[in-house]
Nucleic acid binder design. Structure first.
Lengths: 198, 198
DNA sequence: CTTCAGGTGAACATTGATGTTCACTGAAAG
DNA sequence: CTTTCAGTGAACATCAATGTTCACCTGAAG
C-alpha cells in the first residue's frame, strides 16, 4: 500500500521466460516450413508450441514481431554460404563453380523454407525485408564472381548467367528436372563456357 | 394450382443470365490477377462484379467451380503459343529460338496471372489441374524441340537447358534482371551453343 | 513467511467469411 | 393478363481468427 515499491529483478525466472519465447519461435519456424508463413496464425502457433494464445501475445505484440524473431532465428541456424568459401580461387570459372556449389548445397538443405518464403513474400510484409536483404546479398556475391571475369569479351551474357545461376528458383527448376547438385553445377557452368559466336 | 406445368424456355432471359455469369467470371479473373486466387473470396467476387453474394452461389456451387470457369475463360482469352509457330523450322537452333521467343512474348503479356498462379497453386486445389496440364504441355513442346537435336553429342546438357529455358520462372528471373525479350532469347540460346569442353 | 509480478487459463466481444433460408420484385414468357 | 424465375436484400447460424480482460497460481525477492 505504501508508495514503497519493492525492487524485483527476476533472475531465475528470466530463464524459463526465455525458454517459453524459444518454444514459440521454434513452433513458428516449423509451421512456416509446413504450411507457409501466410497460413501461420497466432492460434496455430500457440497450439503448436503448447502455450496459451495469450502467452504468445505477451511475448510478441503481433504476428509481424513473431515472424521477425522467427526469421532471424532461422537464419542463425541456417546461415547462407560465405564468400570465404570461394574467394581464394583465382580462376573465374573455378570460383564461380565453387560459389554455385556452395549455394546449391545450401538450397538443398533449406529448400522447403525458401519455397514457401518466395511463395508468400508478396503477402507477408514481415518477410519482405529479409528477402530483399538476401537478394542484395546474392547480388553482391554475383559482383564478386563477375569481378574475376573482368574484361571478358562476352560479359553481356556472362553477367546475367551468373546472376541467374545463383537464384533459388534456378536451383529449384533444375532440381525438379531430376538433376543432382553436381549435375546442376556442371550445367550452369556450361552455360558460361560458350565462346563468341553468331 | 393444377399439376399442369407451363413450359418455360427462357430465351431473352438466358442472355442476361449468361451476362451475369460472365460478369462473375470476369470479376474473378481480375481479382486473381490483382490479389491472387488464394485471397479471392466469394464475398469479394460478389462485390467486384456488382451482384449479391447469393447470386454467385446461384451460378456456382462453390469457390472451386468459379475458379474452374475462370481458368478456362482466361485460357480461351490467352491461349499459349502453338507449335505451328515454329515446327516448320528445320534448324534445331532456329526452331528452339522461335519457340522460346513465342513463349517469352506470351509470358510478357500474361506475367501477372502466371506469377500469382505459381505462388498460390500449392494452396488452391482448383489450380492444380490446369497448372499440371500446362507443365505437361511445356514438356511436350520441349520434346518436339529436342527431337530436332536428335543425335547431338551433348544432349545431356541440351535437354535440361531447353526445358529450363521454357519455364515461366526462367523468363521472370531474366525479366527481373532487366533484359528485354530479345536479350533473353539470345541469352538462353547462348546456353545451348557451347561445344564439348572439360 | 509475506509480498510482488510474470505467466497461465478461461472468458469475452469483434471481425469477416461461409453457406443457407425467405419473401419480394420485375421482366420475359405463355 | 397471368405465370414463372433470375436476381435482390435481409436475415441467420456457423466457424475461425483477432485482440483484450480478469482472476488465479506460483516462484523469486524481501
Amino acid at each position: 500500500m505504501t508508495g514503497q515499491k519493492r525492487p524485483y529483478r527476476l533472475r531465475e525466472r528470466a530463464k524459463s521466460q526465455e525458454e517459453t519465447r524459444q518454444k514459440i519461435v521454434e513452433a513458428t519456424m516449423h509451421l512456416h516450413e509446413e504450411i507457409g508463413p501466410r497460413a501461420t496464425t497466432i492460434s496455430a502457433i500457440a497450439e503448436r508450441s503448447g502455450v496459451q494464445r495469450l502467452t504468445v501475445y505477451r511475448h510478441f505484440p503481433d504476428e509481424t514481431a513473431v515472424f521477425q524473431a522467427c526469421t532471424s532465428h532461422w537464419l542463425s541456424l541456417n546461415p547462407p554460404p560465405e564468400s570465404a568459401e570461394w574467394s581464394g580461387l583465382e580462376d573465374p570459372r573455378a570460383r564461380f563453380e565453387a560459389a554455385v556449389a556452395a549455394f546449391y548445397a545450401y538450397f538443398s538443405r533449406t529448400r522447403r523454407m525458401w519455397t514457401v518464403s518466395y511463395e508468400d513474400v508478396a503477402h507477408v510484409p514481415a518477410l519482405q525485408g529479409p528477402m530483399a536483404e538476401f537478394a542484395a546479398y546474392l547480388d553482391g556475391v554475383s559482383k564478386g564472381l563477375l569481378a574475376a571475369f573482368d574484361g571478358a569479351a562476352d560479359m553481356h551474357h556472362i553477367a546475367p548467367t551468373v546472376r541467374h545461376a545463383l537464384r533459388f528458383q534456378t536451383w529449384a527448376n533444375l532440381e525438379d528436372q531430376g538433376l543432382d547438385d553436381r549435375g546442376k553445377v556442371a550445367l550452369v557452368s556450361h552455360w558460361l563456357c560458350c565462346p563468341e559466336r553468331g
